[in-house]
Write a protein that binds this DNA or RNA. Structure first.
Lengths: 188, 188
DNA sequence: GTGAACATGTAAACAGTTACATGATTCT
DNA sequence: AGAATCATGTAACTGTTTACATGTTCAC
């Protein structure tokens, strides 16, 4: 379980409310981690109980609570850093579908593939805009900034890999169905 | 939940025992889906109850059960194919660690990054061997084979993207720690 | 006959998703 | 005054992982 550590990192970058944290998963943190608000609130409560974080004594007494990292939280994060982990596992629905379709035939997935291509193009676009906004000025001298840029670049590269692959696959699948190889799914 | 559909696809490719299915997740299916044997047995039991699959009347009366897909299973899989899905979500531990380290400082992750680089090189190697073994002879005319090749190629490309990125990142992080920018994690 | 690989399973713990519910603040 | 957004939470469910447990087959 590392959602706690994602939240610690995010709070270390900037003390925030649960809501702000949830929103941040759509941006910077979102390249490589997602979490719903329910997960976040549950986790924040548990971290509060462990004294990893605390609520800032906020003058603007609204209902929102701003959390900040405490010493114990820093220690926990540092300990977690020293652990080893295997590369993330991939679980890709689309690939399973494609392989199922390879068995069943028809050309049932063209639309789906094209939609995925569109989504990847949009995501790439968003990432590139963030890149242009935050990291354009030459090579960053600040280590933190440099690492953030590298993470974004990996996200960009991954999207590009998907786009290239789909742009190669789609026309080839189309030409397959033009030949008389059209196999219809039949089980009746 | 699509483990059932992954299993259906796999069984459609070749009727198998639970154990064989589990093993296949280390190979072909494993590029984009993983499952433990516990998940697989549980799922097989449920699919059997729904009559999506059946046990082949096996002469070699061992303890092992070979499963095959039934009509209802084919129908279920075809229905699932027609559904839409969003691109798979990424959840990458290493990226979180890196971002945490960007906050805490030290150069605590070099070893970990190098190990990941190694693993990705090994995985790439395995994929390339499978490629050489199964897909070397020109362009496959058979649609099924073509799709399998494309899926493997995506896996290869993804590994290559990781390797390139890590080979770029690691030396740059090293040169950061050679400058007097070395920041130690301090919380005492 | 012993150890490795084959083969199946139960139970508990943990993580993640979905549905539901509420109320405050800000903008028009 | 009404809508959109901010903000937090509970409960139930589904999916995944880990620990434990057991027995078979095959090769040496």
């Amino acid at each position: 379980m590392s959602l706690a550590h994602v939240l610690l990192t995010s709070l270390l970058e900037k003390p925030s409310t649960g809501f702000e944290l949830a929103r941040r998963f759509d941006h910077s943190m979102g390249y490589f981690w997602q979490a719903s608000h329910q997960q976040i609130y549950r986790e924040l409560k548990q971290m509060l109980k462990k004294d990893w974080i605390s609520i800032t004594p906020d003058i603007t007494s609204t209902r929102s609570k701003t959390y900040q990292v405490e010493q114990l939280g820093r220690i926990a994060l540092t300990e977690w850093l020293s652990q080893h982990s295997a590369p993330a596992q991939v679980r890709d629905d689309l690939m399973v579908r494609l392989r199922a379709e390879a068995q069943l035939g028809g050309n049932q997935l063209l639309q789906e593939l094209e939609q995925h291509l569109n989504i990847h193009r949009q995501t790439l676009n968003i990432y590139q805009q963030i890149f242009a906004k935050d990291f354009t000025r030459a090579a960053p001298k600040q280590r933190t900034l440099f690492i953030h840029r590298m993470i974004l670049e990996l996200g960009i590269q991954m999207e590009q890999t998907w786009i290239d692959w789909l742009e190669n696959l789609i026309p080839q699948l189309k030409s397959f169905s033009l030949e008389n190889n059209v196999t219809k799914p039949e089980f009746f």
